[in-house]
């Protein structure tokens, strides 16, 4: 593909951003899947889009990689407009779809080769790059096996490798660990962690741990809208306006519960477990209150805030169904 000066990135002021969306929206009939999203993802950033299923994450990704036309707004990838220069965009992005999409009767080598060749890569370069990927992703020993014989985790890794083989500048990883067991998930997290800084990565997930441990910044998305944005630390510490204490105790009497309820906003009892939440908690005071009411506390702790709590607070819903 020849470069054409008129097709070049049009704005210099936004050069720091790898992905920019400008009131991006998409409707399917009456349903607004993406509702005026504005995002600025910096070059080299690992950005997570966190939200429940159906929040609009995949639709956003599909628009950004030019598979779907937006109903309103537009986006720029490394300065290229997705509507005006889709093939420019496709040249420099790598996409790992939500479903594992690999050619089952090809081996991993051939799968990588196919994507590399569609990007017009030279044979030698393609070979070197594939070898490198197969080695880092731990698939080198199985490179010649047909993919249909792979485990889910291996296919998933190949799925991601196919988004990287042509050395793209911007990588979209749509739910990269969907449906994997914790061990396989951890292996992929480790690899994504290593990609950090090398590439700009936009990752979508509904696993809060994934966003929490990997992302530089997180945007929480719900019903097509970005409802919160920041680092994991910012989201948890600035947005959360309540603390939760969990106590394990025996013989929790109604009187004891009543006493705590007088002091704190929320008290929840499930068997031997007490959950107390309020804007401000005093660990010692609660332990004392329980003690005075004749309840023997076996253990107690102040719960670390999670992104789940953040999501619950903002939307009133649990992140996980």
């Amino acid at each position: 593909m020849t470069s054409n000066s008129s097709e070049r990135a049009s704005t210099d002021t936004d050069n720091d951003f790898a992905v920019q969306t400008l009131s991006l929206s998409r409707k399917f009939g009456d349903l607004t899947a993406v509702d005026g999203i504005d995002l600025n993802i910096k070059k080299g950033e690992l950005f997570a889009l966190l939200g429940p299923n159906g929040a609009g994450k995949t639709t956003t990704i599909n628009i950004l990689c030019c598979l779907l036309k937006p109903s309103g707004g537009t986006a720029r990838i490394m300065g290229y407009d997705i509507l005006k220069q889709p093939f420019r965009v496709k040249d420099i992005i790598g996409v790992s779809p939500q479903e594992t999409v690999v050619s089952e009767r090809l081996n991993s080598w051939e799968n990588l080769e196919l994507i590399g060749r569609t990007h017009g890569m030279e044979a030698a370069e393609l070979k070197a790059r594939s070898q490198e990927l197969l080695a880092t992703m731990g698939l080198a020993s199985r490179a010649k096996d047909q993919v249909r014989k792979f485990s889910g985790g291996m296919k998933r890794r190949l799925n991601i490798m196919m988004a990287l083989v042509h050395d793209p500048q911007v990588v979209f990883l749509d739910e990269p660990t969907l449906g994997l067991d914790p061990q396989a998930r951890r292996a992929i997290w480790e690899y994504i962690g290593r990609l950090k800084k090398e590439k700009t990565i936009l990752l979508t997930t509904h696993y809060m741990e994934e966003a929490d441990s990997l992302a530089d910044r997180i945007a929480i998305i719900d019903e097509g809208k970005i409802v919160a944005l920041g680092t994991a630390h910012e989201l948890k510490n600035n947005l959360l306006d309540k603390q939760t204490m969990v106590a394990q105790a025996q013989d929790i009497t109604p009187q004891a519960i009543e006493k705590i309820r007088n002091k704190y906003a929320e008290v929840e009892v499930t068997g031997d477990t007490l959950k107390i939440s309020d804007k401000q908690l005093s660990f010692q005071e609660i332990v004392d209150l329980l003690h005075d009411a004749g309840v023997a506390v076996r253990s107690a702790y102040i719960k670390e805030p999670t992104l789940d709590d953040v999501f619950l607070q903002i939307t009133g819903k649990e992140l996980r169904e």
Partner: peptide, 17 residues
Amino acid sequence: EKGFLARLLTTPTRPLD
């Protein structure tokens, strides 16, 4: 159906290709 076509279309592959 399996999304392979969609995957190819995120590369510079055109439907005609």
